[in-house]
């Protein structure tokens, strides 16, 4: 079980702890939301909404069920996908075939994606297209192992091991 005192304090309503958690995770959450919405303003607004929401629902976080980061990641992904499907953006659906992350990973610097592309490229150095795809589906889109295996048309077990290999390579590219 996660023994993070910050999270215990957050659950008890400690706003200082919450601000620290915001500092630790808000950029990552904003990045995930950004990868789904492809829109800077909406990504930043939604990230703010997500953090308000997790504060209001802090009682519902159950460390037995998973990591704090995973909890807010799921809330953020769901909120972003809901926003895609909302009335004002009816034409936009979560398109499994199109991916901000994969596009960016595959394309040269020709396009301005609104992100620090050098940083992305550095992180995913030597990962290859299969890794880009599987990380996109599992992490940025939150598909289950089964859905991912069906979409990529590979066995269930392959999804797990391939994703593990990709993340392991990504870990080697992390700056110390």
């Amino acid at each position: 079980m996660e023994q993070d005192p910050l999270i215990d304090r957050f659950k008890k309503g400690d706003a200082v702890a919450f601000e620290q958690l915001h500092t630790n995770y808000s950029t990552a959450i904003c990045g995930v939301v950004h990868s789904i919405l492809r829109n800077r303003e909406r990504a930043e607004e939604l990230t703010q909404d997500v953090f308000v929401k997790i504060w209001n629902y802090r009682d519902q976080y159950d460390a037995g069920k998973g990591r704090f980061f995973t909890w807010i990641l799921n809330i953020a992904r769901n909120a972003a996908i809901d926003e895609l499907r909302s009335k004002s953006h009816k034409e936009q659906q979560l398109n499994l075939h199109s991916s901000f992350f994969v596009d960016m990973a595959e394309e040269a610097e020709a396009q301005d994606f609104g992100v620090d592309i050098n940083r992305v490229k550095e992180l995913i150095r030597d990962l290859g297209k299969k890794c880009h795809q599987i990380i996109d589906l599992l992490y940025f889109k939150g598909l289950t192992q089964k859905e991912t295996s069906e979409f990529l048309d590979v066995p269930l077990g392959t999804v797990k091991t391939r994703n593990r290999n990709c993340i392991s390579r990504l870990r080697k590219n992390l700056p110390n």
Binding site: T27, G31, A43
Partner: peptide, 20 residues
């Protein structure tokens, strides 16, 4: 988790400063 967080951060809008 650290790897996922770093990857997520890399996808944040360029120069984004999310104030509390």
């Amino acid at each position: 988790e650290n790897a996922y967080v770093a990857l997520g951060e890399s996808m944040a809008p360029k120069g984004s400063a999310l104030a509390f």
